[in-house]
Design a protein around this nucleic acid. Structure first.
Lengths: 207, 207
DNA sequence: GAGGATCGTTCGTCAAGTCGAACACCCTGG
DNA sequence: CCAGGGTGTTCGACTTGACGAACGATCCTC
């Protein structure tokens, strides 16, 4: 039902109280930074020399950083982040999930003392996800096709009323009120209402 | 109706396309880091010496960093973040908003080519906000009172169906379907359904 | 009020990050 | 075939951050 995808640790714990895993990542992400630097540079199609020039750092420094040798200063890393056009923290913290659907009624439910309350955790954001919340209304009869956003962007849709078909353009998913779905936003995807007055909450996660 | 609060720049621009302001913050946040270090240390009620000891850095180094002198290495800053029990990026990026309401129909609307689509930007997340999405269902007759969460947490509520009263315990707000409200989560707040079958999307922003 | 302890700051010393230049390498074109 | 401009890497010199110790300042104890 959900295909070959890795569950991104949907630990439903962080709702009832403190979350100890927030800053407890053990070691300084020297290697992670190295990988992120190289990844983002190649994604942007830039050369090491060019990035170094734009950032105002020596290319020797960048070379060492990309090779995992070194412990950059904040100033240096910041300059590189700006040159690469990515948020600073993307260089220091790991990537994001993939595709996941949560039908109405599914998911980790959190109940209160008096049973009149039930909350379903839809997506526990990674520490540095940038998430923009949208309230989306659409009427049937037209398909809104969205092209690829920035690399790594993820979209979350919670249908509040009506029915809609959304998801990757090659495999749309039909959702009804209360359904929740998330999918990659950096691939072509679409939105189509199946009933009048359809509306949903859209969370656009940029990283 | 919304009291003395500063509008946290709800620039509705970032929806139609690329967002140049994502990593374009001009200078390296030397002073910001200094302020964050001191703030988080005092929040935790720890002494400079103690934090330095836990982080395994010289207290002279920490002193210089808190005074804004210096450009710490990633390794050093990471150790301090762990010692302070805060996510790394909280030390490098600024704080968060306050209180804001968006009634159904209000807000910056984004229309598509065919006018059958309308999205309302609810909250453009700061680059490092950790946002957990919840689908919340609650029935009338009981008030769910939530105590203060972690400092700096912010809650977003989008009512999908029914009516509810929520917000800070000292000044709850009545919301109907389509209404959106956001308020501080580190102060006592409550949720109360006013109709059967009330449900909402809850976004818990931890920072 | 003297003693002790701890706070945060400032001062030299050492190590490490950053820089610039020279290096080997690949591809293109004269 | 071999200059030419491009890549990313490695090498010393310099700059700078991190360390440890000593320094006033403050607070509590005896």
């Amino acid at each position: 039902m959900d295909g070959p995808l890795s569950r991104p640790s949907m630990s439903g714990a962080s709702a009832s109280g403190a979350d100890p895993a927030r800053a407890a990542e053990a070691g300084p992400p020297l290697a992670s930074i190295a990988a992120a630097l190289r990844l983002e540079r190649e994604r942007a199609g830039l050369t090491l020399s060019e990035v170094a020039r734009r950032a105002g750092v020596a290319k020797s420094t960048l070379s060492q950083l990309e090779s995992g040798t070194g412990n950059p200063s904040v100033e240096t890393l910041w300059a590189l982040a700006v040159a690469l056009g990515v948020p600073f923290s993307q260089l220091v913290d790991p990537p994001t999930p993939q595709v996941r659907i949560l039908r109405a009624g599914e998911g980790v439910q959190i109940h209160a003392e008096l049973a009149k309350f039930a909350a379903t955790l839809l997506a526990a954001g990674s520490p540095h996800a940038r998430r923009d919340l949208y309230l989306m209304r659409l009427e049937p009869g037209s398909v809104r096709a969205a092209q690829a956003h920035l690399t790594g962007s993820v979209e979350h849709v919670i249908v509040a009323g009506g029915r809609m078909r959304t998801g990757p353009s090659e495999a749309p998913i039909e959702l009804a009120a209360g359904d929740y779905a998330t999918f990659r936003g950096d691939a072509p995807h679409c939105y189509e209402a199946l009933e009048p007055g359809t509306w949903a909450v859209l969370v656009m996660e940029h990283r």
